Computed example of a mutant assay.
Amino acid sequence: MYTLPDIKEVTNLSHEKQSQLLDNLFEPCPTLTAILLQTVLATSTPFSSYKQLIETSRTQLLEYLRSSEQESEKTGEIRPEIAKIISAHPRLGGAKKSKKSLQGSQEETEMLAKLNAQYEEAFPGLRYVVFVNGRSRQVIMDNMRQRIARGDIRTERREAFDAMCDIALDRASKLGAKL
């Protein structure tokens, strides 16, 4: 099992160790890692907590998204890195390496797969990302349906980044960080 380094040492770690840390807090994603290494971890000022590190990451990711959306108003295209970051997250209900998954019946598993496909058709290049936090498959599937029906890709991108950071906070806590 991965052990979190002392938070006060994170900014002094090698890029390899920082990348490993980010892979354990977020999903492994070279694009995400590169952005956070250049922005959040480029500081020489130590973080006081993992919460501060993750919330700073959230701020940077949302700013990256905001600036990309502003550029897209001129160019008509969103930065492809946005979709790379979001699609690094595994599909809900799919095969996972971890012990935790959304437990349910075969029928629910099939419906979740269908909803994942509908979501990805509605929002090309994205994956549905949500902080499950003990919620049932039914609650998650209801949320997927609502988000598909809403049809707002800009909101989906923001919600995906927020969910990724919420998941990172949860992972940090489970890895022993005092938030």
Rank of each mutant, 00 (worst) to 15 (best):
I78E: 12
L37S: 03
S57H: 02
R79T: 13
L37Q: 05
G134M: 08
R135K: 14
R137D: 12
E81Q: 15
G94C: 10
Y64C: 11
S98T: 08
N116P: 06
L102T: 06
S57A: 15
L112W: 01
T59F: 06
I82P: 00
V132A: 09
M141D: 11
R137M: 14
R127N: 10
S48D: 07
I85Y: 02
K100R: 11
I86L: 07
V139E: 15
T75N: 10
G76R: 05
L92K: 01
F131K: 09
S49I: 03
S67L: 14
S72Q: 13
R91K: 15
T75R: 10
L102P: 07
T43R: 14
L126N: 02
R58N: 11
E121Q: 15
M141V: 08
F123D: 00
G104S: 05
G76E: 04
N143P: 00
A42G: 06
S101E: 04
G104R: 00
K51S: 08
A95F: 12
L61D: 00
L65C: 11
T109M: 09
L37P: 02
V139N: 11
E108W: 02
S136Q: 10
L102V: 13
M111I: 10
M111P: 03
S105P: 04
E77V: 13
E71G: 11
E121H: 11
E110S: 10
S67K: 12
K96W: 01
V132N: 11
S72W: 02
F123H: 00
G104C: 05
G76I: 06
K100D: 12
E55W: 04
I54D: 00
V40G: 04
A122T: 03
L115P: 01
L92A: 03
E107M: 11
S87A: 15
S44P: 04
A83G: 09
Q106E: 13
T56D: 13
E71S: 14
K114V: 08
K114R: 14
K96G: 10
P80A: 08
M144F: 06
Q118F: 05
A95V: 11
N143K: 08
N116F: 08
E120H: 03
P80D: 08
V139F: 11
Y50H: 03
V129P: 02
T45G: 07
K96L: 13
V40L: 12
K114N: 14
K100E: 10
L65N: 03
E73Y: 04
T59S: 12
V130N: 05
E121I: 10
S49Y: 01
R135C: 10
R137S: 14
